[in-house]
């Protein structure tokens, strides 16, 4: 039990210590981005890594979370810590009909269908102007003073966002850890390896996939809600961009599909590279995402974490072997 809890405790301690160590707010921004992408990579990984269902439509769920959080805040005055979970719930709700339709398709056909759904959601956001403000989107100019457990929140500092992102990322990792040991997780792996066989042994594959999609959508929606509050800006191009779906896929894949730590490793690696390039050149930070994706599939299909874990296991076996001998 202690061996399983140890990495979590270490992680929480490291997260708590980090703001004190980082030299300036750019690094804190990078840390926040890494945490947000850990959550989003984890969200995609539940469906893509465990169930083997490659969705290209997660940007839609992210965008729904972002819009719901933003609209609730601007039109109903609801603070983001209510808006973000409600955004997640909205994304999960929307995922149900999408899942019921798209899961009738398999393999690459499922991927193409989710891509089409994401494009439809984007079109609706662009054109349903009374609700979404069309291509103009929403902007939060000033946050009203908000208190959180009696403490006034300083919106100009990045610290509250860092704390929120850390909480969300831990939530994403915990959800993955739970899924890995749950019965549902076992069903998903069976579906990934052989869907016909999974059905033949009595697994309700559609139910398992739809449930996982809803959980994945909830996490993606949380990420979107966080994005809206952090960047204070939402428009179809920013939060419903197909590149967001791709980034989630790439982070989970480069980090290690179907593992708990994979999305974290992928986010640390890709987001650091990406944000550094973005800071220096403004455009083209996704060059490296594409490149590392291609390299990973070619040379390291199990991902960085998958490979590292295997090497560690081999090393441990050798060391233990020596001890035994």
């Amino acid at each position: 039990m202690t061996r399983r809890l140890a990495p979590w405790v270490a992680g929480v301690v490291a997260l708590a210590a980090l703001p004190a160590i980082v030299p300036n707010s750019f690094y804190l921004h990078v840390a926040i981005m890494i945490l947000m992408w850990t959550l989003l990579g984890s969200a995609w990984n539940l469906l893509g890594g465990f169930a083997g269902q490659v969705s290209f439509g997660h940007a839609a769920l992210f965008g729904i979370g972002a819009y719901v959080t933003m609209i609730l805040f601007l039109k109903a005055g609801l603070a983001p810590w209510w808006g973000i979970p409600l955004g997640g719930l909205a994304a999960a709700l929307v995922s149900l009909p999408i899942g019921l339709v798209c899961f009738r398709l398999r393999g690459p056909y499922f991927s193409l269908a989710t891509l089409a759904v994401a494009e439809i959601v984007k079109l609706v956001a662009l054109n349903w102007e009374t609700v979404t403000n069309g291509s103009v989107g929403f902007l939060i100019t000033t946050f009203p003073p908000v208190r959180f457990f009696g403490l006034a929140v300083d919106w100009e500092s990045k610290l509250p966002f860092y704390a929120l992102a850390a909480l969300l990322a831990l939530g994403g990792l915990a959800a993955t850890a739970w899924l890995q040991t749950s019965r549902l997780g076992a069903y998903l792996i069976a579906i990934r390896e052989n869907e016909e066989a999974a059905e033949a042994v009595g697994i309700d594959t559609v139910r398992a996939k739809v449930l996982t999609f809803a959980l994945s959508a909830f996490l993606a929606g949380l990420g979107g809600g966080f994005y809206a509050a952090y960047f204070r800006y939402v428009d179809p191009d920013a939060v419903l961009n197909i590149n967001l779906s791709m980034e989630m896929v790439f982070i989970a894949m480069v980090g290690g599909l179907g593992t708990v730590a994979g999305p974290l490793v992928g986010a640390v690696f890709l987001t650091t590279v990406g944000e550094s390039v973005r800071e220096r050149f403004q455009v083209g930070h996704l060059i490296f995402y594409g490149l590392f994706m291609m390299l990973a599939i070619r040379y390291m299909p199990e991902g960085i974490w998958g490979r590292a874990r295997r090497l560690l296991a081999a090393l441990r076996a050798r060391v233990l072997g020596h001890v035994a001998a």
């Binding site: 490659v54 690459p108 991927s111 791709m246 790439f250 594409g290 994706m293 291609m294 599939i297």
Partner: peptide
């Protein structure tokens, strides 16, 4: 499919 997704992002960017 995922490999060509990477290629697509690489060329576009």
């Amino acid at each position: 499919l995922l490999y060509t997704a990477g290629l697509s992002l690489l060329i576009a960017n």
